[in-house]
């Protein structure tokens, strides 16, 4: 059966409208959850950087963590009884794209409490393993000073480039941003 030009155009229009409408509805229905997921993931990442383990992370976050302006950068502050700690955004180029995350520091800014990554596009299974606790936990409790890989702090096998990017981010933060922070 041979059909005219008009039929083709109308058919295409109907298909486009129907499919796009379904997608628009699904998107509208799911978008709040997706946004919520992103925020929840960020909250968990921050608590993880602070080294906080909680049964109800959301309630804990609402009760004890606040946004804080440090003058040059904006970050978060944790206050739980007598303990105070800060989480500061770090960012830098990785192997593929920018890596960003938070560095949690003690109240006197002299000890690293933890590090977490919120956005990275490194190779899954290789550089992507900077997300794993085995790598990140090595930073907990280190004196905050220019770092290098050693016996105690090991890079990820097979992902030298990403591993050194992470240290470069931290060291750059130490040199350029740390002196400018206004804590009070």
């Amino acid at each position: 059966m041979k059909r005219g030009y008009l039929y083709t155009v109308i058919f295409m229009a109907i298909v486009s409208i129907v499919l796009t409408a379904i997608l628009a509805i699904s998107n509208a229905a799911m978008l709040p959850t997706i946004k919520d997921n992103v925020w929840k993931a960020e909250q968990l990442a921050l608590l993880d950087a602070f080294g906080v383990v909680s049964d109800d992370p959301e309630a804990y976050f609402d009760a004890h963590v606040k946004e804080k302006d440090f003058g040059t950068v904006k970050g978060y502050m944790l206050e739980d009884g007598d303990t105070k700690a800060y989480a500061l955004p770090i960012e830098g180029p990785g192997l593929w794209g920018s890596i960003s995350g938070y560095l949690a520091l003690s109240e006197d800014l002299k000890t690293i409490l933890g590090i977490t990554f919120t956005d990275q596009n490194e190779t899954p299974g290789l550089g992507g393993r900077i997300d794993e606790p085995q790598f990140r936990d090595q930073f907990r409790g280190l004196n905050f000073e220019p770092l290098r890989y050693s016996e105690e702090l090991s890079a990820i096998t097979g992902a030298t480039q990403t591993s050194s990017s992470v240290l470069r981010m931290i060291n750059q933060f130490y040199e350029t941003i740390l002196p400018t922070l206004e804590v009070n």
């Binding site: 960012e91 830098g92 180029p93 990785g94 192997l95 593929w96 794209g97 920018s98 960003s100 190779t123």
Partner: peptide
């Protein structure tokens, strides 16, 4: 923050992260 240099991306996409091989 400093961006990844375009030249590095160029070389990486040919050799270290080749479309097919990686």
């Amino acid at each position: 923050a400093p961006q990844v240099s375009p030249l590095v991306i160029f070389i990486a996409s040919i050799f270290t992260n080749n479309m097919i091989l990686a």
